Computed example of a mutant assay.
Amino acid sequence: MKKIIYVLSLTLLASVFFGCDVLEPSQDAEPISDAAANYPTPTFTLTSSANLSALNEGDENVLVWDVTVDKPIDRNLNFSWVVLGGTATLHEDYDLVNATIPAYETTGQLMIMIHNDSAVEGAETLQLTVESGPSLASKYLVNPSSSYPTASLTINNFESDDLEMSFDWEKGIDFAGSTYGTCANIDLDIFVSNAAGFDINDPWATFNGTNYAATGDCPETFDWIMSDWGDGDYVIWHEVWSNGFAGLGTNTLVPITASISRAGVFSTTVVQADVQAMNSDNGGEADDLPVDTHGVIAQVSVANGIYTISDYNGNVVATGKTNTAKTKRPSIDKVERAIKTLH
């Protein structure tokens, strides 16, 4: 009798386990409708007049695609950029902004932001497309037959017409068991003279006041604006305005290092020759300083739109042609956007 009950019990258990279908979990989100026509369908419109195959780093382009769906739904829709290839570097040359269309709304925006870059480099490329999602929660919420845009960008090197100049003379001078910085204790001013007839013993005779740096800062800086100067040969020189080391017997040369760059073309440094550098023992105030408190730093020649930078001895350290098609880099808030349909 016990055996019969045991067999019946096993039979009942088997019917429970094997009489039911096993449910398999699904990773895919449920579509909002079985009919594809009921899915929202996105369209993408480029709202910029920029030529994608001839962008320029200096223009700080912001490329915007308006994303519009033909019907709202009760969940957010996300659209993301996918990089397919190219030589441009994310976060250095460009950044991407994905689009979110909030629930019950029908519009959003995708963006590509081209960064202002003054590095000396060749043209860079970038190829992208767009996908829905990419999260599973929103990937399958749009019409599976939707078309997505692709973008092929060429980002050309920015070349400035102007020179950026910086003049630094920081070094440590030991005195009475301590080290003192020259920037904090020596004030140098930077001036430019026409090279024709220039004499370091009387540099003011050919002084050109178009640009100079006499602010009391270290380093001193100024921008050489091509449109203000034009062709010619020029000498950059210093004058000692004050020297806190005068009379202390430190007897140390304090050469100036000039950093000169033309964005996108060249960047160079010129270290002032020792024979032109000031000595820490010289004078105290400008009116009392001897004539040797002036010294040549570098020379600049401009001919037919070509810069040539030379040191005191005439050694060429950099040269580069100007780009007369542009002057200053425009600000990002001045980028104009015109409506253009993406093909």
Score class of each variant (00 low, 15 high):
Ser146Thr: 05
Tyr180Leu: 09
Val83His: 02
Tyr312His: 13
Phe191Cys: 05
Gly230Leu: 06
Gly249Trp: 01
Ser178Phe: 11
Cys183His: 03
Phe44Trp: 03
Ala119Cys: 03
Ala184Asn: 15
Asn76Val: 06
Leu63Ala: 04
Gly244Arg: 00
Ala176Thr: 08
Val120Tyr: 03
Ile114Ser: 00
Ala29Cys: 09
Lys321Trp: 03
Glu336Lys: 15
Gln272Glu: 12
Leu55Phe: 03
Ile260Asn: 07
Ser259Gln: 10
Thr41Asn: 15
Leu55Asn: 06
Ile4Pro: 09
Asp189Glu: 07
Ala263Phe: 01
Val271Ile: 09
Ala338Ile: 11
Leu188Pro: 03
Ile5His: 08
Ala123Phe: 01
Ser49Lys: 15
Thr47Asp: 15
Phe222Gln: 06
Ala35Gly: 12
Val275Met: 09
Ser267Trp: 02
Leu13Cys: 15
Ser15Lys: 08
Glu285Lys: 06
Met111Ala: 10
Glu30Tyr: 12
Ser259Lys: 12
Trp169Tyr: 05
Trp224Arg: 05
Ser135Glu: 13
Ile5Gly: 10
Leu136Tyr: 07
Ser280Ile: 04
Asn38Tyr: 06
Trp65Asp: 12
Ala205Tyr: 08
His294Glu: 10
Leu77Ser: 04
Met165Cys: 10
Asp288His: 11
Gly19Thr: 03
Thr107Gln: 06
Asn279Phe: 01
Asp311Leu: 02
Asn61Lys: 13
Gly305Ser: 01
Asn156Ala: 05
Asp168Trp: 03
Ile332Arg: 11
Gln276Asp: 11
Val254Thr: 06
Trp204Arg: 14
Ala303Thr: 10
Asn313Phe: 05
Gly247Tyr: 01
Thr210Ala: 09
Asp34Trp: 12
Asn143Ala: 02
Ser26Pro: 12
Leu136Arg: 13
Asp223Lys: 09
Trp204Val: 11
Glu24Cys: 14
Glu60Ser: 14
Ile112Glu: 02
Glu124Tyr: 00
His115Ile: 00
Leu96His: 04
Ala273Leu: 04
Gly197Ala: 04
Gly283Trp: 00
Thr252Leu: 00
Thr68Met: 10
Glu131Arg: 07
Leu153Arg: 00
Leu253Trp: 07
Ala195His: 09
Ala151Ser: 09
Met113Trp: 07
Ser49Ile: 11
Thr319Pro: 01
Gly283Tyr: 01
Asp74Gly: 08
Asn315Arg: 10
Leu77Gln: 04
Ile73Val: 14
Glu131Gln: 11
Asp199Cys: 05
Thr322Val: 13
Asn315Ile: 13
Ala258His: 06
Thr89Arg: 03
Phe167Ile: 04
Tyr212Ile: 05
Gly85Leu: 04
Ile236Phe: 07
Pro255Gln: 01
Asp333Val: 14
Pro102Met: 01
Asp187Ile: 01
Ser259Thr: 14
Ile101Pro: 03
Asn304His: 00
Thr268Phe: 02
Asp174Leu: 11
Ala99Asp: 06
Thr68Val: 11
Ser146Pro: 07
Ser118Cys: 08
Pro203Tyr: 02
Gln127Arg: 15
Gln299Trp: 03
Ser310Gln: 14
Ile73Gly: 05
Thr221Val: 09
Thr47Glu: 15
Asn76Phe: 06
Ser152Arg: 09
